[in-house]
């Protein structure tokens, strides 16, 4: 299925992130969709908004934007969406198996003679699968086993080889990165939403979302995109979800120097912009940032300062 999509090149380009993941080790049910395809539909607003359109190209200023004594800062909440379906709770698992058995029991009769030609390999294979399934359903009952063993005898060697070839092998839901606890890998916690946080070379508030000051004549989205590019390199395929911030955070500047001028900012306002990553990886420049991590909401608590977490936690996905 995936290969078909790739060949066709759907306008909504699947992020090659998910492709990479599939090629290497991706467990069975995928949930990677291209949110970027929104851009194709809303051609009026978001696609333009993902591109610098405002006056910044006309007036290129590196002056920081200060409004009412507050520096305006743009942050980027860069997320990697879940790649596989979530884990089921034990209750859900039980419930679904129960429902599956009910469904099988009450299903309408299957017209095998309609779908399979008599004596064909497909028919034999289907009969074998059916025997296996009924064996599973009645688990210990001898009847199912008998039936399946009978089917085994009927099958030729050729059939067995064909069955092996067509058998779908599920990959592990736990990846290598999970086992090594490699927080820099994008292929960890496949069923969860991951967020990018970066570490700055300082003692307090070192772990944060990538963020930086907004210049005069620049909108929030451009500023967030520019900051990401400066801090994390341009080796990432990103899509910003709209132009509106999804949250904000105020704080007082600790070393506010009031002496030099009255217009010096006393505080800062951080506006967070939402973005998705489709491919690529962060490249640490060792100047502005020294480290990075892809973490879930719950893991983020261990990295960032408590007041910072308190401010951003409602923007983040619990799943």
């Amino acid at each position: 299925m995936l290969s078909i999509i790739r060949r066709q090149g759907l306008r909504a380009t699947m992020g090659s992130l998910s492709q990479v993941a599939t090629r290497t080790a991706l467990p069975a049910p995928r949930l990677a969709m291209a949110a970027r395809s929104y851009a194709a539909a809303a051609n009026a607003s978001p696609i333009k908004s993902n591109i610098s359109t405002t006056s910044s190209s006309l007036v290129s200023s590196t002056k920081d934007l200060v409004i009412n004594g507050n520096r305006i800062i743009a942050g980027a909440v860069l997320s990697r969406q879940p790649l596989i379906l979530r884990d089921l709770t034990p209750f859900e698992q039980e419930y679904f198996t129960y429902q599956k058995n009910l469904e099988r029991g009450n299903a309408a009769p299957f017209g095998a003679e309609f779908y399979f030609k008599k004596g064909s390999v497909a028919e034999r294979r289907w009969k074998q699968q059916e025997a296996e399934r009924s064996g599973n359903a009645t688990s210990a009952s001898s009847r199912g086993k008998e039936a399946s063993s009978q089917m085994e005898d009927e099958l030729s060697e050729e059939d067995r080889v064909a069955a092996l070839e067509s058998k779908i092998a599920f990959n592990d839901r736990v990846t290598e990165a999970d086992r090594k606890n490699d927080v820099r890998s994008l292929e960890r916690s496949l069923a969860r939403t991951l967020y990018l946080i970066v570490k700055k070379p300082r003692d307090q508030h070192s772990w944060q979302f990538p963020q930086g000051g907004v210049h005069v004549c620049e909108n929030l989205q451009e500023a967030a995109g520019r900051e990401l590019q400066e801090e994390c390199g341009s080796n990432m395929d990103l899509w910003f979800v709209g132009r509106v911030p999804i949250g904000h955070y105020n704080y007082k500047l600790p070393n506010a120097v009031k002496t030099d001028s009255t217009s010096a900012p006393t505080g800062a306002k951080v506006f967070f912009m939402k973005a998705h990553i489709f491919s690529g990886q962060v490249k640490v420049d060792n100047k502005e940032i020294v480290d990075f991590a892809w973490v879930t909401k719950q893991e983020m608590k261990d990295y960032v300062a408590p007041e910072y977490y308190e401010a951003v936690k409602d923007m983040l996905s619990d799943f």
Binding site: L10, R11, A12, M33, A34, A35, S37, Y38, A40, A41, A42, N43, I47, K48, I51, T53
Partner: peptide
Amino acid sequence: LSGFNMPFQVKNRAP
């Protein structure tokens, strides 16, 4: 619909 990967035509692509 495009959130579900439904393909849409884009005529006027931004530069």
